[in-house]
Simulated assay, not measured.
Amino acid sequence: MTVALLTGCDAVSQNTTITVAEGELPRTLAASHVDAGRYLVLVGGCNDCHTPAYARTNGAEPAESEWLKGSTEGHTGPWGTSYGKNLRLTVAGITEDQWVEKLSTGTSLPPMPWPGVRAMSDADKRAVYAYIKSLPGEAGTPAPAPLPPGATPPAA
């Protein structure tokens, strides 16, 4: 399949043709692999759970240098209380291929949207890995372990 893309916002647009192999999943195209990963993190809502204060401040906080460090803001439901893991520590401890495998087969507690994550193309999973690896600063600390149903989360 051949896809034509229009790029540029000025009066003169450029046509770029990309050939996609039959059966290949759609993937995000950006100026770089890291840019594609950043876009996927933003539109995929990763920061909502994996970055403290992000959802509560409607994305106004914290700075991008603090993104994806995990959160102590719990998500409570019939499963107990779960916390967004520190994805920086996760990618620091595994290879890109292990990350793709993890996202392809992963399961965990809600609200993690595993069906959508598993459906991502391997190229997009690799782009997210590249983006997380590119984030500056300290990796942070692990998020709290999940709590079973009925357990009271500590005060934030």
Rank of each mutant, 00 (worst) to 15 (best):
R126Y: 02
M112S: 00
T19D: 12
E64W: 03
D10S: 07
D122A: 11
L147H: 04
A21R: 09
G44K: 11
K69F: 04
H75W: 06
A156L: 08
E64H: 06
T107S: 15
V12R: 14
S134V: 01
Y129M: 03
A92F: 10
L6Q: 13
E138R: 12
A155S: 08
S104C: 07
A21M: 09
P113W: 11
G23Y: 09
A130Y: 07
L5N: 11
H33F: 13
R88Y: 02
G140H: 03
Y129E: 12
P52E: 07
E66W: 12
G80P: 01
C46P: 00
V91G: 04
K85V: 05
A36Y: 01
K102A: 15
K69E: 08
G44I: 03
C9K: 15
I18W: 09
G84L: 01
T2F: 15
C46W: 00
L103S: 02
L87G: 04
T51R: 01
L25K: 11
P149C: 06
N86P: 02
E96W: 02
R88C: 07
V41D: 01
W99A: 01
Y54V: 06
P110Y: 03
G93A: 09
A63Y: 11
G44M: 10
T95N: 05
A31R: 12
Y83D: 00
P136H: 08
T90M: 15
L5S: 08
P62R: 03
V34S: 03
G140I: 07
S104E: 12
T81D: 15
M120W: 14
C9Y: 09
G106R: 04
T90K: 08
T7I: 11
D48T: 13
A11N: 14
G45N: 02
R38S: 04
A30D: 08
T2G: 09
A11H: 11
P148M: 06
S104L: 15
A155I: 05
P26T: 01
A63N: 12
A4T: 14
E96R: 10
T95R: 13
P142R: 05
P148K: 05
R27P: 09
V100S: 09
G23V: 15
A53E: 14
G45D: 08
L87M: 12
R126D: 03
G23R: 12
A60Y: 13
T19L: 13
A31P: 00
T16S: 11
P113N: 13
A4F: 06
A156H: 13
L103K: 14
L135Q: 00
A151W: 06
I94V: 09
M120N: 05
C9F: 14
G140T: 04
S32P: 07
H50M: 14
R118P: 00
T152H: 13
D122C: 07
E64S: 12
R56N: 12
V128K: 10
K133A: 13
P26K: 07
L40N: 03
L6V: 08
A4G: 12
I132H: 04
H50K: 10
V41I: 04
N15S: 08
T141V: 09
R118G: 05
L5E: 10
K102H: 09
P52G: 06
A130D: 06
E66P: 05
E96L: 07
K125V: 01
Q98T: 07
L5C: 06
A145P: 02
S82M: 02
P148T: 03
C9T: 11
V100W: 06
G84I: 00
T76D: 13
V43C: 08
A123T: 00
Y54H: 09
G80M: 06
P78C: 11
